[in-house]
């Protein structure tokens, strides 16, 4: 059992780490849209922009991605798109699906949209952590 004064350095360290994390992390708005036709992906777009308005500050469990040679977030997300989409899609995904059957001809069109949301991105030397902000 330590005294109240003895616990202060630990509390200061926790506060410093928390504030450093919030200061170092940049907020980005990221959205994704995938169009598939007849079970084949025909178009996908990943939109990334720096947040120009304050984002919520509640962090979800982060996703860690490997970073090579000071890569930008755009390059990194295009490379590791699958990992990011799996991370982000476990929250909310919008779906619009149409299937038309004329005689023996079947056509299907699906649009999957990941709504644009705020993510805190913390850059490190060889990895990046991305956390959804809510």
């Amino acid at each position: 059992m330590r005294s109240r004064n003895g616990n202060r350095p630990i509390l200061y360290a926790i506060c410093a780490v928390t504030s450093a994390f919030s200061l170092l992390a940049d907020d980005y708005l990221i959205g994704y849209r995938l169009t598939t036709r007849n079970a084949q992906s025909i178009q996908e777009s990943l939109d990334i922009s720096k947040a120009m308005m304050p984002c919520p500050q509640k962090h979800r469990s982060p996703l860690t991605l490997k970073r090579d040679n000071n890569e930008s977030i755009e390059t990194l997300l295009i490379r590791d798109r699958t990992a990011f989409i799996e991370y982000a899609s476990s929250q909310v995904m919008q779906l619009k699906s149409d299937q038309t059957i004329v005689g023996t001809n079947i056509k299907s069109l699906q649009i999957l949209t990941l709504p644009t949301r705020c993510y805190a991105v913390e850059f490190n030397d060889d990895f990046v952590t991305i956390s959804l902000l809510e």
Binding site: S89, Q91, V92, T100, V102
Partner: peptide, 18 residues
């Protein structure tokens, strides 16, 4: 002459996992 069927669904899915 012709028979056609159209099925559609629109939804927001939350918490699905692969």
């Amino acid at each position: 002459q012709q028979s056609s069927t159209r099925t559609s669904v629109e939804a927001v899915v939350r918490g699905a996992n692969v």
